[in-house]
């Protein structure tokens, strides 16, 4: 009479005996190994091929993304900014040690910062920095020089010729950019207006303290100056070294 345990033991012994007796025929043994190695090599090749394809398509995708991104940025810059901003002060007037010029709207939502070192600018919209390759127009620093020439009276410089922009650590001109963009067309008009103001015999008031250049802004914004500058200018700050 077989109980469960005895049956299990008997079957186990029987199966182990069969296991020990399991021997391949020599030819089959070699065939299995040979076919397996072939299959393995093929699988390796196909895996490499897949990897190559993945790499190839990744590169294509990356190039495509770069092109599309460039196109979008170019599109944005052309349509929204490039035609509006004709600022070329930094490139020729500020040395490496000078700072940047900012154009801010009153609420601070719009800001353009030109890096004089890299000769490139970036735009800040709603406090988010967006780098845009700005193609700046021809040099217009004569406007700035004229501006400084005008300012010489205010600063009581001996000679205008002695003034170099390198003498300033930073010049920050803050204007109402939104209004400027709408009505002023471009920033050159701003400087042109300054020149016009000077040529028309406009004289800056001298009663203000030279170190409080912000008062000049106050003057601009409160005087009926030619070119409607008062509509644009909110603040001007020059920081000396």
């Amino acid at each position: 009479m077989f109980n469960v345990k005895k049956t299990e033991n008997l079957i186990k012994e029987y199966l182990h005996a069969k296991k020990n007796a399991a021997i391949f025929s020599t030819s089959m043994d070699k065939k299995i190994l040979s076919d397996s190695l072939d299959a393995y090599e093929k699988s390796n090749i196909s895996t490499k091929s897949v990897h190559t394809n993945i790499y190839k398509y990744s590169v294509r995708a990356a190039v495509l993304i770069i092109i599309i991104t460039g196109f979008i940025i170019n599109h944005i810059s052309k349509n929204n900014f490039y035609n509006e901003i004709t600022f070329n002060i930094i490139q020729h007037t500020f040395s490496d040690k000078t700072g940047s010029v900012r154009i801010n709207s009153n609420d601070g939502e719009f800001s353009i910062i030109f890096d004089n070192k890299g000769k490139k600018g970036y735009v800040i919209i709603n406090q988010e920095k967006k780098y845009i390759p700005l193609k700046l127009p021809n040099i217009t620093n004569k406007y700035l020089e004229s501006f400084l020439e005008m300012s010489a009276d205010y600063f009581q410089f001996d000679k205008v010729d002695n003034i170099s922009l390198n003498d300033f650590e930073r010049i920050s001109i803050q204007i109402n950019a939104e209004t400027l963009m709408t009505n002023g067309k471009n920033i050159n008009n701003f400087f042109a207006s300054l020149i016009q103001y000077r040529n028309n015999g406009g004289v800056f008031p001298t009663q203000y303290n030279g170190s409080e250049f912000a008062r000049l802004a106050w003057h601009f914004s409160n005087q009926n100056t030619p070119g409607g500058i008062a509509n644009y200018l909110t603040n001007i700050e020059i920081v000396c070294p």
């Binding site: 399991a22 393995y40 895996t47």
Partner: peptide, 29 residues
């Protein structure tokens, strides 16, 4: 082979099964 033999009770067929099985295994590499 022992398992295939135990289940099939046919050595030739068991060898074929092991062949197919191991080649498939190798193919997954």
């Amino acid at each position: 082979l022992a398992l295939a033999h135990a289940l099939l009770n046919d050595k030739t067929l068991a060898e074929d099964i092991v062949h197919d099985c191991f080649v498939s295994f190798a193919g997954r590499g």
